[in-house]
């Protein structure tokens, strides 16, 4: 740090650092800063700053050394270098959202969260979104807290995985404590564990998954009489 510490104390705000910058650095910095939490790709930056490449490169290095900007990962295009002013946190578009860490989908974390929620729903038998949210908080199994949107996402994926079903309360039996029509979630299997999908009638026959079925005719070049998939299937 080249700046005297006294000066820093006097002007703690973000406008201060730019004073010690060169003219070029100032231009580059203002371009980056204007993009806020979206950051900017180096090539776009060069265009907007309208400076020679080598000057832009130098300015970036120096700004980075002064901790005024930082390099961020963009999940959309990991190969491109993105920069952002230091005081911003990368937007969801860049990071990929809550489920990403360092630009990659945090698969382990996601599966832990899914399993945890499935278990809680199984224990609750039938529950609403709010009920599940409260129970997750109470259980303390996760250090982080979830937003409503995140919980909705988790519930949706559990429904997609067929570990949980979404049902509307009928107001009777196990739904007795919920008003009629209220969306509830219910475990589909014991322990809320993953279920093996059943075997479909079509899916278990070669034709059901045949990429050539539209070209297959009884007397054509592709025909059930000579079909190689059939032959393989019936080879005992």
């Amino acid at each position: 740090m080249s700046r005297p510490s006294a000066l820093k104390r006097k002007q703690p705000d973000s406008s201060s650092p730019s004073e010690s910058l060169t003219e070029h650095e100032k231009i580059v910095y203002s371009v980056i800063r204007s993009k806020q939490d979206m950051g900017i790709w180096t090539r776009d930056m060069k265009k907007e700053a309208n400076l020679p490449d080598n000057l832009v490169g130098k300015s970036i290095k120096s700004l980075q050394a002064k901790n005024l900007i930082k390099e961020v990962v963009n999940v959309q295009s990991k190969g491109r270098k993105h920069y952002m002013a230091a005081e911003f946190e990368p937007s969801k578009e860049l990071t990929g959202g809550d489920w990403y860490s360092n630009g990659t989908l945090d698969k382990y974390y996601i599966s832990c969260v899914k399993d945890g929620f499935a278990k809680i729903i199984y224990q609750l038998k039938v529950a609403t979104l709010e009920g599940i949210s409260d129970e997750v908080k109470k259980s303390g199994i996760f250090k982080t807290s979830f937003t409503k949107q995140q919980i909705e996402e988790i519930l949706r994926v559990l429904v997609l995985d067929k570990r949980v079903t979404e049902v509307k309360s009928t107001g009777m039996g196990e739904f007795g404590s919920f008003p009629v029509g209220k969306v509830c979630y219910k475990s589909t299997s014991k322990g809320g564990s993953k279920r093996e999908p059943k075997v479909g009638a079509m899916a278990s026959i070669p034709c059901g998954v045949c990429p050539r079925i539209s070209q297959c005719t009884p007397d054509g070049i592709i025909s059930p009489r000579t079909c190689v998939y059939f032959t393989k299937w019936l080879d005992f």
Binding site: M202, I205, C207, G208, I213, C216, P218, S223, P224, R225, C227, F230, L234
Partner: peptide
Amino acid sequence: EMFHTALNLSLRLAC
């Protein structure tokens, strides 16, 4: 496609 498959199975059966 199911009818097609049923036809294919019966034809192959005969074959």
